[in-house]
Design a protein around this nucleic acid. Sequence first.
DNA 1: CATTATTTGTTTCGAATCGAAACAAGTGTT
DNA 2: AACACTTGTTTCGATTCGAAACAAATAATG
Lengths: 186, 186
Amino acid sequence: METADIYKVIERMAALIRSEERKRCTELGIQIVHFQVLDYLSRCNKYSDTPAALTHYLGMTKGTVSQTLLLLERKGFIRKVPDLADKRMVHLQLVAEGWEVLRQAYPKDLFNKAAEFLEKNCPEVGDAPFIEALTALQKAHQSHSFGLCGTCKYFTTKPEGFFCGLTGEPLTKSDSEKICQEHTVP
Amino acid sequence: METADIYKVIERMAALIRSEERKRCTELGIQIVHFQVLDYLSRCNKYSDTPAALTHYLGMTKGTVSQTLLLLERKGFIRKVPDLADKRMVHLQLVAEGWEVLRQAYPKDLFNKAAEFLEKNCPEVGDAPFIEALTALQKAHQSHSFGLCGTCKYFTTKPEGFFCGLTGEPLTKSDSEKICQEHTVP
DNA sequence: CATTATTTGTTTCGAATCGAAACAAGTGTT
DNA sequence: AACACTTGTTTCGATTCGAAACAAATAATG
């Protein structure tokens, strides 16, 4: 009874955050979708920086995503880099202008201020409940949870360092902190 | 250091929820904004069911909101009712078809399933931290927090029942559970 | 009480977005 | 070699978006 309400509260926060982001995007002359794309590209890992992954992440059709990317490219926010192994694929990279717009659109002040109030009001509250809630949500969402690499079922630690159990590739600490489209909740 | 990250986690949840909502809206042939409008109208109180309030809530321009409402009216989801006291104002009401679409678009299953996982994994976690986080976010957002009537600074309890300290009007229990544009965090 | 400002909502315009479907090109399978 | 599948683009028409101009009602001012 009580637990279901948690996600209603989260939804309210989501609406508030969305509203703030929308206002900032309008001031910057971009659409809120563009912000979401830039934000995703700034956080995703090398397996997940393709138009197809974006399509899954945003829940849009690939045609629409293609158009959005075209515009972001024209505006000089992103760059397309062909994949060396698979000639169909394209990797998307944020360029300097993209990072700058992202920085300006991100409601950092709001988050910092909110965190301040929260800290003052109940200093004993840690981030544990929120991380648990996110994990549960990802588990419920199934399919592609787009979680952080380091929290994945296939993330393994060896004496030599981190590895991805799916691709077998070694991973840096930075890699482990990024969003992966293949992410699977343990 | 740790508290600021809480809102990053919340933002990730927001993105996940948004993605699910977008998919559902596409299936229903509506835009995600339409869902947001219907959702808001289903939760707001009688002081907050106007185009102007929606404009503030969504962070859009009033022209755009006007167009969106026109379409929702054409589709038979909402109805416009003129205000009796102020002839400029219009009140927006959800009609049966609107409620039905809202019900279909709302990611209830996702929330229920997530709540189930959360309950199983850490039964001791209550909704308190989440409500605190929401309150802090509303406080940080200032201006119009669009909070629940019952959590407002001007919400007062008298022997005769609930009252709004701003308008002086009596409020039912149902009123106190709705979103108000005049909401002020204590 | 008349004039002026402000609020509330609509209309109009052009650029941009959206989803659907067709398309092209590369990869994998049989 | 033929076929299916994946990946991304193009094209189309309906819709959305923000900006600015507009109309009407209310509030404020003198």
